[in-house]
């Protein structure tokens, strides 16, 4: 657990509406402490990605908007800022599904991450080396077009690209998506190293509750656009409901989806 309790990012009761009609987030609040890894958990359509995009202000181009609540970064409201202004403030998002620039080489991809920086080529080159030490595989593939690299390499490229902006906080959306368990482990280990060695704070949206809770310090669980549970990762891991609904375990061991009682209890919990 990080010692400092300083809050970097504060999301207060935000509501997000797409296309003026579809209410996706119904009042989500969360805190991201400095130097920690915070996990945002939940199933498909729970609102994890929307929450991250509401913070990074990438909603606008998808016809979504934050209609209520506020997003505070270092004590300053940021929900009216453009994505590039936010990147300059040190908050960068790694989008779900990697989103590398397919026709650019890996190295060019990484360099685009430094687009907002004004501290000169030498500093950027040094950070490129830093990224290569964390992701040696990217160095091997640095002349390949990103579109032709593997899913794991693309995920590394996306994280590396975000690192190139020298961020204070990375919003990491679903890094495990479509990757083999071994690779998921590798990526999360690198995230942990980055957190510990480079002091980058993470807000991590993840469906893979098991892995996420092992690496995160605290977590929030989202269901249908609401936070239904929050707490330190260790506590969440031991919570019987989390165990049953997200980790697929219960007191009686593994359970089947056909279990009617469990379904009813979950319904009640959501109401």
């Amino acid at each position: 657990m990080p010692d400092s309790k300083e809050t970097l990012l504060e999301v207060n009761n935000i509501e997000v509406i797409y296309n003026h009609v579809i209410l996706v987030l119904k009042g989500v609040s969360l805190n991201v402490p400095k130097g920690g890894i915070t996990a945002l958990l939940g199933g498909n359509g729970a609102g994890k990605t929307t929450t991250l995009k509401a913070i990074s202000n990438l909603l606008h181009s998808e016809r979504g908007e934050v209609t209520k609540g506020s997003v505070i970064y270092r004590g300053e409201p940021v929900h009216h800022l453009s994505p590039e202004a936010l990147v300059k403030k040190g908050v960068v998002q790694v989008m779900e599904g990697r989103h590398c620039f397919e026709h650019l080489t890996i190295e060019e991809n990484l360099l685009t991450g430094a687009y907002t920086r004004r501290d000169g080529g030498a500093a950027v080159a040094a950070d490129l080396e830093m990224v290569y030490t964390y992701f040696p595989r990217l160095k091997e593939r640095r002349k390949s077009q990103a579109g032709y690299t593997s899913g794991g390499e693309q995920q590394m490229c996306a994280i590396g690209r975000a690192l190139m902006s020298r961020p204070e906080t990375i919003l990491l959306d679903e890094p495990s998506m479509g990757l083999a368990p071994q690779l998921v482990e590798e990526i999360f280990t690198i995230v942990k190293n980055l957190n510990e060695n480079e002091g980058v704070s993470f807000l991590l949206a993840e469906q893979n509750t098991n892995v996420a809770l092992r690496f995160a310090h605290q977590g929030y669980i989202l269901e249908s656009g609401r936070v239904v549970m929050e707490g330190p990762a260790a506590e969440l891991r031991e919570n019987p409901d989390v165990k049953e609904f997200y980790l697929g375990m219960s007191d009686e061991g593994r359970k089947s989806f056909r279990d009617v009682r469990s379904y009813r209890r979950r319904k009640r919990w959501l109401a």
Binding site: L58, S61, V87, V92, M95, F101, A162
Partner: peptide, 10 residues
């Protein structure tokens, strides 16, 4: 290549 990703890196 990718508008959204370009936005996300600033």
């Amino acid at each position: 290549d990718d508008h959204q990703a370009a936005l996300s890196v600033g």
